[in-house]
């Protein structure tokens, strides 16, 4: 074994960082890529099945309703604001503000999950009638699982902030949670356009 010679000392480096400097951010980005790509593959398959039909939606299947999905889209977009405020407060290590905005974020995001139930039925078809219905239900269903996961994460984070003394790295986790929420909302926009608006266009 070669003798070791110290050439640098890292003891002054920070131990909690935010964004791309932190490992957790990269992990979050990795899973976002996987989930975004899965959504893309589902949308690709939906469009592939489109070729098997003369009409889209198939004959005797009505267009998806637009009312509930549009309201929910709006809600999702609005919920980005409290989410951003959580991140902003967390980056100042401002615990009261983080708690406050986490509550608002819960209040803004949980209804989207509730509305999602009617949003599924707004497809106006069942999953077991045609391949069109199967594809639409699978895409929206898959996105619902992302929605559920991030809302659970938000609820858990909120709960923990209120009932226990959180370590300072939890502020960094809170920004990653908001980061993931932007993704969940962002990935919904093309899904909404293709699954709900799309059949009226192609």
């Amino acid at each position: 074994m070669k003798p070791l010679r110290p050439v640098d000392d890292v003891s002054a480096l920070p131990t909690v960082t935010f964004g791309p400097r932190s490992l957790m951010w990269w992990g979050t980005l990795g899973f976002m890529t996987i989930e975004g790509w899965t959504t893309a593959l589902l949308v690709g398959s939906y469009l592939y099945l489109r070729q098997n039909y003369e009409a889209w939606p198939p004959l005797r299947t009505p267009y998806p309703s637009l009312l509930i999905p549009s309201i929910n889209l709006l809600l999702l977009l609005v919920s980005v604001v409290p989410s951003a405020m959580v991140a902003k407060a967390a980056k100042r290590l401002d615990e009261p503000a983080v708690k406050r905005w986490l509550l608002v974020m819960c209040a803004a995001t949980i209804p989207t999950l509730v509305l999602r139930w009617w949003e599924l039925w707004a497809l106006n078809t069942r999953w077991d009638t045609t391949a069109y219905g199967s594809a639409a239900w699978t895409i929206v269903g898959f996105h619902t699982s992302l929605l559920l996961l991030d809302i659970l994460d938000t609820i858990g984070l909120t709960l923990f902030f209120f009932i226990k003394k959180m370590p300072v790295k939890a502020f960094s986790d809170a920004t990653d949670n908001s980061f993931y929420w932007y993704f969940t909302v962002g990935v919904w926009i093309p899904v909404y356009l293709i699954v709900y608006v799309g059949p009226r266009i192609f």
């Binding site: 480096l13 920070p14 131990t15 909690v16 960082t17 935010f18 964004g19 400097r21 980056k91 100042r92 290590l93 923990f160 226990k164 003394k165 959180m166 370590p167 300072v168 790295k169 939890a170 502020f171 986790d173």
Partner: peptide, 15 residues
Amino acid sequence: WQSTQPSGVERVALP
């Protein structure tokens, strides 16, 4: 819960 246990004094690099 286990991942958010107290970890002592941290040096935080604010963004």
